[in-house]
Amino acid sequence: MTLPEQKATAGGPRPWWQRRGLCLGVALTLGSALIGLLAPVLAPGDPAAMGELSDRLLAPSMAHPLGTDLLGRDVLVRLVHGARTSLMVGWVSVLAAMICGTAVGMAAGLGPRWLDRVLMSITDLFMAFPRIFLILLLVSVTSPSLVLIMVVLGVTGWMGVARLVRAESLSLREREYIMAVRGLGLTPLQVARRHILPGLWPTIIVATSLRVGGAILSEAFLSYLGLGVQEPMVSWGGMIQMGRANLVDGWWLATLPGVALAITVIGYNLLGESLREWLDPRRQAGGLDD
């Protein structure tokens, strides 16, 4: 099932926020990446080490700008370290999904027609399914770990990329320059790798950046359920889970990791949206799909 193709809408000036969107998106994603990379420098020490008894559940103050949790650990330090987990899971799983999706999409778009039908049926099958149930099913039969989360998110996340890549491959293969290199006697594999793949990059990059946010949110939810990243590793989702018990008297515990998540994900979504507009103005409308 595909959506009806959207015609390009009439031009008109681009709204301001979309151009600022790119800058803001880059700033937020770069910022979160830097915080994640520099976590040991920015917040030295072990984020899992318990604090003094007197340090428990302190409201934000000068000593602890974002307060402390039930075990007396500084929330800011933990937030900074949590960025590492979120970004690592987000990036690794999306890169895995991107590689699978590109391979499947190119095989479907460029290969024989029967292969296309088989691969696209499988893709549709996966897509028809609520992803979170698929993820939970996979997680439920194994024991939770960081690697597992990345694998599961990758395995369940390639379908959208595959469809986009297939559609783009179908259109690229009919271009004249592809006919020309075919005529030169290159093998189909060479044509695919050297001449079609470069043309696919804009699609792949946009699809990738739009999916990192979703992967980060999925990891957070799994960790919130206790099915994702396990202690002592810090995860924003896990922090929210811990803060749940003190929703009112320790409001900062559940609230702040969510804000961190929101800012990071908004950054990636803004980046993806603006990149799409920039690299692929034809498909301005629609979006936010998976």
């Binding site: 949110l217 957070a220 939810f221 929210i240 559940a254 969510g258 998540l261 908004i266 979504n269």
Partner: peptide, 8 residues
């Protein structure tokens, strides 16, 4: 769309 749903 970008907010963590469970957190919201």
């Amino acid at each position: 769309y970008s907010l963590p749903f469970f957190w919201l």
